[in-house]
Write a protein that binds this DNA or RNA. Sequence first.
DNA 1: CCACATTTTGCAAAATAATACAGGTTTTTG
DNA 2: CAAAAACCTGTATTATTTTGCAAAATGTGG
Lengths: 249, 249
Amino acid sequence: MLKKERQAFILHQVNLHNKVLSSSLCTEISVSEDTIRRDLQELSEEGKIIKVHGGALSHSFNEVNFSTNGVYSQPEKLKIAQKAIALISNGMFILTSGGTTILELARSLPPQLKATFMSGSIPAILEYMHHPNIEVIVIGDKISKNSKITVGSEAIAKIKQMKPDICFLGTNAIDVEHGVTDNDWEVVQLKKAMIESSKMVVCLTIAEKINSTQPIHVCDLSQIDMLITELDATNSLLKPYINAGVKVA
Amino acid sequence: MLKKERQAFILHQVNLHNKVLSSSLCTEISVSEDTIRRDLQELSEEGKIIKVHGGALSHSFNEVNFSTNGVYSQPEKLKIAQKAIALISNGMFILTSGGTTILELARSLPPQLKATFMSGSIPAILEYMHHPNIEVIVIGDKISKNSKITVGSEAIAKIKQMKPDICFLGTNAIDVEHGVTDNDWEVVQLKKAMIESSKMVVCLTIAEKINSTQPIHVCDLSQIDMLITELDATNSLLKPYINAGVKVA
DNA sequence: CCACATTTTGCAAAATAATACAGGTTTTTG
DNA sequence: CAAAAACCTGTATTATTTTGCAAAATGTGG
């Protein structure tokens, strides 16, 4: 990895998460902590980040005080993203839906990962695009503005031609009885196709949405291979799902 | 392998992957590392790539870092955008390429305009998406990281199915003798398809690029219906194009 | 076709850049 | 305050670049 490349990646990370730890960076990029520190030093001298003890902060950090607004990556989603990333190995084909959890996944991908990501979600594509080693396949069709994802028969047809290793689904509601449910008809059509096509289906959701329902049915629990939340796998909230045959992480 | 040939290959690689390592290039082309370094040196002096320790980066690589200041709009491009927008009426189907000029067009669209925009350029799609009344059709395929546009046979096939009213092309180089030329093979394939499909082809370019050429041929002047620059239509620089039958605005 | 200038290429030694490592020092934190 | 973490400094190591030069290829004018 070239120096400039590495620094660009660091800068991107800082801008995304508003902070970075030197310690985590050095394992992600697999270089010594010294190198990271020198990079942070240089970036800081160029005024692009603010170096602090233990890592660096984004410039906008000061301005945005405690607005728990969407720009912030909630630690829960980060945790979910980490677990999801553990499932990905080099060379895999990954299909993803949209949603903020998927976005967090996209942002947290380790830079040395080489894989192919397919999606119709514009925000997710943007993130994948910034990654140095990921191939991005865009699923084309008409854009649904409120979900910022391409929807329609073309998109569905395209998905049906694919056979991804893993499909990561951002999940709006999940429930033992009704399975996965959602509230946007077009998006649901898409998700159904994604589930059909994929060798493995992984649902990502924050604990808050567990045991909730939405009007439109996406799939039953039996069609899901794994459920990822920020909770510990032993949490009692997850037991019914484990009993239903869903792996949990 | 000829020197020019080799340099063209290198440039293509840089545009494709956004970076190259001198070490890997020299085994691929089987020449000494010195030769590669000299090539990179020259290409860098011509401003086509950015040389760094260990290899080279594409120019657009750095632009990604500066994406924060991407908001700035050169007044020339704004002027071009205004002229282009004057051609669009409600209900039209518009196909656009990528590029900063197109981006400016996308940003300047009047909010009451109702039209359908089709593109494979992710930055452009982002802008269209923000517009309240525009329908956005995404052309899917693999993303070329350098140009941030989808490229490949799928994208071309999709374009060939369309029959847009206007096609707006961001233009890298135009010349009376050679017509429109560009430097990225894959993008050129796409532009060719776009030109074929469209009822009307409009080239957008800043005056700076008039009477310049790039290595790969896109189309002849005869295939262009209109050329839009920031210059006044009476400017002598544009005369040869008017004489060649191209409308000018 | 030949002799000569020019360009291109490869090689090797010296210079430089990037990084890792070892130690001692400072900052953070409980 | 004391342990842990992070930092700084200098040094060693490795990879890359520079430089000068010679061989090979190419071009050119007689």
